[in-house]
Structures are given as structure tokens and as C-alpha cells.
């Protein structure tokens, strides 16, 4: 089975991200980067599928040279090969999907996994766009997945207030939701082996962003609370402020 996992190289969840000098990108200094947490579920799903059916798992990532470290994490977890679509130019979701789609279209993928979203730009678009561009069914936000011997897929998706069960057929694009599996830790030996696994470099065709970022800003700082007073006497003042200042009642 020919399995691909599209992964994203994102700032660590514990990193305090700052807006860069240009006001429309993040300041990369001091940021530690990790494999996007939702993509860990995707890598795990790919590895489990490979272990059940045999085949090969290729980790694909679009971005500058720094993303190789994230590809290597996927290789350390157990993927066989890396595919690096090299570009120093940040792209919108459509452009990233386009680069992935043109790279994958002639590679006879049986299944393409990705995470439900990358935790940096929160686009949630990759599985849908890839399905469309590659003319493949797209099963998104799967929290339970079964791929049968005959290539049929049964997946559970979380929807508002409940679960939805869908069926489809390989080849397909599947995006992973938290809970799909329990991603493995790379083994130390896996980290050493990852150094020797091949990473193929490809150049994407030129693309002009369709969506332009104008500005990036931090959420407004929460102002300090105000203590109106204590005991029943303060209630009157509190109600007045809630009505006149906060305008919530």
C-alpha cells in the first residue's frame, strides 16, 4: 500500500508567539517548532495501516529547509521516506494544497492522511482542497477509522452534538481528529534510523497567493478586574455598572 501523510511544521504549543516586525507574520526568533499535533494522529494512522497491510509510508511537508526536522520526526516514528516540497515563500491554504496535489498526483497514492487542521494558521482546508484537486473522496475530521481489505472505508466523524458514520473507498484523503489513535513515541533507535532514511526534495511550480495577509495582531490584553465593594451594599453599584458600563444587562 502506498501511503502518504501530509504534515505541517508549527510552533510548539507552549511557545509564546510574537508578531514580527512586518506586522503580518510571526516572529520566528526563539520559537521551537514541532510536528503539528493533529498530524501526529495522521502519522500514527498511516503507520498502523502499513503494519496491518504492508506498504510504504511517505511523510510530505511543504516549506523551507527547517521543515526537514519535522519530516525527520515522522521518519523517527516509523515512516519510510520523506518528501520535501521546498519553498521559502509562505503560501495560503490553496497554494499549499496545490503544491501537495501536484507533487502527489502521479505517485499513485492509495491513501493520503493529514491532520484536521494545523494549529498555527487554523485553516482546516487541506483535506477538502486535496480531495478536490486530486479528484479523490475526502473524509474529514475522522475520529474512528476502518480501512477494509477491499479498500472500503468506514469512518466516524464528530459533528455538532453527535457522531456521523460515513463510508467511502480508497484511494482517498482522510484527515485525522484527536482520539483517532494514540500516537507512538519515536523510539531512540528510530531517531538514529531516521537520519539514514531518504528525503526527496522537489520544487513546486510558481504560485501567487490568492489570499493576502494584511495584518496580524495579538488578542487584546484582558484588563484587570474591578472590585466594586463587598457584601450586599455593593450589589446596587455592580448592577449599575453591568447595565451602564458593560451593557450586559
Amino acid at each position: 500500500m502506498n501511503i502518504f501523510v501530509c504534515v505541517s511544521h508549527v510552533p510548539d504549543t507552549t511557545t509564546k508567539v510574537q508578531v514580527g516586525e512586518d506586522g503580518k507574520s510571526i516572529d520566528p526568533s526563539g520559537v521551537t517548532w514541532i510536528l503539528n499535533p493533529y498530524d501526529e494522529y495522521a502519522v500514527e494512522a498511516a503507520l498502523q495501516l502499513k503494519e496491518a497491510r504492508e506498504g510504504e509510508v511517505t511523510v510530505v511537508c511543504f516549506g523551507p529547509d527547517a521543515v526537514k526536522e519535522t519530516i525527520r520526526k515522522g521518519l523517527a516514528m516509523g515512516a519510510d521516506k520523506g518528501l520535501h516540497i521546498k519553498s521559502d515563500q509562505p503560501r495560503d491554504s490553496f497554494g499549499t494544497a496545490k503544491a501537495l496535489a501536484e507533487t502527489l498526483k502521479d505517485r499513485e497514492a492509495d491513501v493520503i492522511f493529514c491532520g484536521r487542521q494545523s494549529i498555527d494558521y487554523d485553516g482546516w482546508q487541506m483535506a477538502g482542497l486535496l480531495g478536490e484537486m486530486l479528484d479523490l473522496p475526502s473524509v474529514t475530521v475522522a475520529s474512528k477509522l476502518e480501512i477494509k481489505e477491499d479498500g472500503s472505508i468506514e469512518a466516524e466523524r464528530e459533528i455538532e452534538g453527535g457522531m456521523e458514520t460515513v463510508v467511502s473507498k480508497l484511494p482517498a484523503v482522510i484527515s485525522a481528529q484527536k482520539g483517532l489513535n494514540d500516537p507512538r513515541y519515536p523510539k531512540l533507535q528510530g531517531i538514529m534510523q531516521a537520519k539514514r532514511k531518504p528525503i526527496e526534495d522537489v520544487e513546486p511550480s510558481p504560485y501567487k497567493n490568492r489570499v493576502e495577509v494584511l495584518e496580524m495582531s495579538k488578542p487584546p490584553v484582558k484588563s484587570a478586574g474591578k472590585i466594586v465593594g463587598e457584601g450586599p451594599d455593593a450589589v446596587k453599584e455592580l448592577v449599575k455598572l453591568l447595565h451602564e458600563e458593560a451593557k450586559v444587562i
Binding site: 526536522e69 525527520r72 520526526k73 523517527a76 513515541y185 519515536p186 531517531i191 538514529m192 531516521a194
Partner: peptide, 15 residues
């Protein structure tokens, strides 16, 4: 080196 960062993050996450 790169593998040392990966070991650190792996063991940290495990711990």
C-alpha cells in the same frame, strides 16, 4: 544536533 533535539523532545513528552 538535530537528533539531540528530537531525543530531548521525545523524552520530555514521554516524561
Amino acid at each position: 544536533q538535530e537528533e539531540h533535539r528530537l531525543i530531548r523532545s521525545t523524552v520530555r513528552e514521554f516524561a
